[in-house]
Write a protein that binds this DNA or RNA. Structure first.
Lengths: 148, 148
DNA sequence: TATTGTTATACTCTATAACTATA
DNA sequence: TATAGTTATAGAGTATAACAATA
């Protein structure tokens, strides 16, 4: 028999776990925003800069990754560009495309940002290696669930 | 000897777990925002309404819980009030205070909102009872870590 | 004097629609 | 025609500072 569609009301344990995840999410966000603020960045700017610290991306692609409209990306990149953290380059293959890329300074800031994320150290500090392995496995399985 | 302050660079496994948590956070947020949008609410409005569905709160207290300035709460409550989901009541004990409270309709919307949070069902659907118990334990221990 | 809530202001993020330059 | 990026616009969230009412 196939698994029935999951339309039942979640049980007590599930709700409890969902609430805990909500707490983790809140904690993660606070840490992320305050780490960004320490570098005079907004959350959106920090996320975009972090993406670009890995590789240059077309504006369109950035919008997809940030899950926002392309018109928003223009403004965020504008602000980062005016601070010298990001630059726009032409795409040799398609003259319509502009590639946004982190400058050297931008990569430096992105690196500092990553390292100042307290969340990376503190909440996990109470877990031993075995527990982190277990947590990793559980999170991986959760993320492997279909979108809908 | 006391445990040394945790200033070391996080190891590979920790970074991996942090990244997974980042993915979970992103997924949770998408779901939360889209559940809110289905009820024509913004994320901030949904969070505030959810708080008030439990108990009436002074504007000041709401700002603390939402971790924003009190002046912002005025606007969010204004918008919810204009839709009949929230109302302001005087506090008999202190005439400076205004208590924000969910209306009956507001509580109904908050309940729907909670139940339409897909995150409560799907990502956890792949985990059995034992795994959920393990996850709960791990998350609880993470949240028990000090703030700083 | 201190506190509560509000107003005024300015900035950022957001979506939508219209525009341009390329393809 | 279709696509990439931009501009214009309007609404919402945010912090800061100043204010009225109350403690």
């Amino acid at each position: 028999m196939a698994t029935p569609p999951n339309t039942r009301r979640p049980d007590e344990l599930t709700l409890e776990v969902v609430e805990l995840i909500g707490d983790i999410v809140a904690r993660y966000h606070e840490d992320y925003e305050s780490a960004a603020a320490e570098h005079s960045l907004t959350g959106a700017q920090a996320r975009l800069l972090s993406l670009l610290s890995l590789e240059p991306l077309p504006m369109r692609k950035l919008a997809q990754k940030l899950k926002c409209e392309p018109s928003n990306v223009t403004g965020i990149v504008d602000r980062l560009e005016s601070r010298g953290l990001v630059e726009r380059r032409p795409d040799p293959a398609d003259r319509r495309v502009k590639l946004a890329a982190a400058t050297q300074e931008g990569r430096r800031v992105a690196k500092n940002l990553r390292e100042s994320l307290r969340f990376a150290r503190e909440p996990l500090a109470g877990l031993g290696r075995e527990e982190r392995l277990a947590l990793r496995g559980l999170l991986q399985r959760m993320l492997r669930q279909p979108e809908s």
